[in-house]
Design a protein around this nucleic acid. Sequence first.
DNA 1: TCGGCCATGAAACATTTGTTGCATGAATTG
DNA 2: CAATTCATGCAACAAATGTTTCATGGCCGA
Lengths: 290, 290
Amino acid sequence: MAEPAKSSPLSELRIALPSLPMRLQEVGRFVAANDYDATTRSMRDLAAEAGADPAAFTRLAKAIGYSGWDELRAALTEARRPSQTSPFSGRARSRRHGPNADVALVIDKLEAEAAGLPRIPAQPIAEAARALHDAKRIWIAGYRSCRSVAELLNYELRLFRPEQVQLVGASGPDDLDLGAFRHDEAVIVVGFLPYTHASVRVAQAAHRAGATLIAISDSLSAPMAEGADHVLLFEAASSPGFFPSLTGAIAIAQSLAAVTFSLGGVAAKKRLENTEARLTAASTYVSEKG
Amino acid sequence: MAEPAKSSPLSELRIALPSLPMRLQEVGRFVAANDYDATTRSMRDLAAEAGADPAAFTRLAKAIGYSGWDELRAALTEARRPSQTSPFSGRARSRRHGPNADVALVIDKLEAEAAGLPRIPAQPIAEAARALHDAKRIWIAGYRSCRSVAELLNYELRLFRPEQVQLVGASGPDDLDLGAFRHDEAVIVVGFLPYTHASVRVAQAAHRAGATLIAISDSLSAPMAEGADHVLLFEAASSPGFFPSLTGAIAIAQSLAAVTFSLGGVAAKKRLENTEARLTAASTYVSEKG
DNA sequence: TCGGCCATGAAACATTTGTTGCATGAATTG
DNA sequence: CAATTCATGCAACAAATGTTTCATGGCCGA
């Protein structure tokens, strides 16, 4: 039936893993986690480090369709070969069609977005972070695709300022929150073309209340950037594809959170540790080592 | 007799090269030019390909101060080992002070993240997009900070496949959705260290149901990558700061959506236009020109 | 409970590995 | 020109590698 794409030996391994005997699973996980050593060191070495029988490696290789460990290792080695940064790295850019057109699209996109990031002005971010640091409370608003940026910012800031950060509209209609803005609070609005009415309303309300308004957008002339105390610009259209890029906005959000955190000093650090301890106690996370 | 900086075995080799016998020079150049093969293939293999005597490799190693080829190879292997953290981890960490410390932090972060993007493997994204294209329905899961990535993906995919894309847990407890996975559907799980139990459960449920599992994570050995048909890797730790970076995950999500859209052809385009028309009619957006 | 199956570890196996001794021939020196 | 040094290829060596076989013990179905 639907042959799963077995582009790399590692993915073959991963796919077969769950249906393997216990010992082979252990060994398989070890290989997946240490694929560099798998290609460079000897089978017996790996066995010793993994605390397993050397034979298990041979059996693992055979279990996923290779003639033996040597062949598996050869496949891994080829997959890791650097000259083929991506198998089509030759920039295959000329070939807009054919089977590799998709890969070329992805590469284009990633490169374009990578190029856009260093062009983001850093100074305004640092200044905005200071404003956040001074704010009694922080409101965050973003709609449609920008919602994800708003939520990330909300999540990260709440890690060390849980009681003072809030998403606009998180607990009821936006309109209720709009009336709650105070002059000593900060409001962050994320948005780019086409701009939603909702985000513009939030910005206007913030301005009216005398709150510090921080706009994360793609243009200085964006409607919600009007009257903003800080405007953090990114290039939404910098990458090919059917939809504007949010990579820059995410990078800004994370930098903003990082600087705000560092401004928070030991107090922020302490609260972050508390939050982490609580999450660990609730066993939200999988324990690090199996 | 100023010992030249012998940071890497390769530089030692290059430095000693000119004073070596002719044959050893040839072999040395071959090693320098093919250092990847030097670490992975056998001495005799290399000798055959270089058209030289196997003994020459042993002699070369001894000539530049190693006890033998094995030791040289070990040094090369260690030099090539991909750093567990990141090339930037040691950098700029020296607590810059002064008024511009924050700005420097932002710049570091942006640069590091920009450097990480082109390292994202493109091929798996294209393959995963094809799987999405073929899926009858698409489920998306992500928790904590990864929720924002999941929601962005959900939003963009729903623009042109509104009825077939759904967030896990969007309309009730996760558990209800977990039982709804079908073999002809695709499940996307976003997560990185520390991994949440919830995301692992989703991945396991997807695997059990025979659905196509796509994992967006920071490691091939992530628990929810086990049994995954496609694993899309990004570097969560590639940037300084208190929190892992989501920029790579966002870039992957957007590329995935873009390729899936392009695979959808005119049908997808048509549906996107419909969606846009509806949003405009509801006057969600501010009209372009004032 | 018995019988077969499979997973697993230990040991024996043939092969391949890196190394070294030796013979040859060219280059260097007195 | 003779004596010496040195670079080089070949072949034999011991060590290490990956593989296979076999004995053991647990598990499931009859």
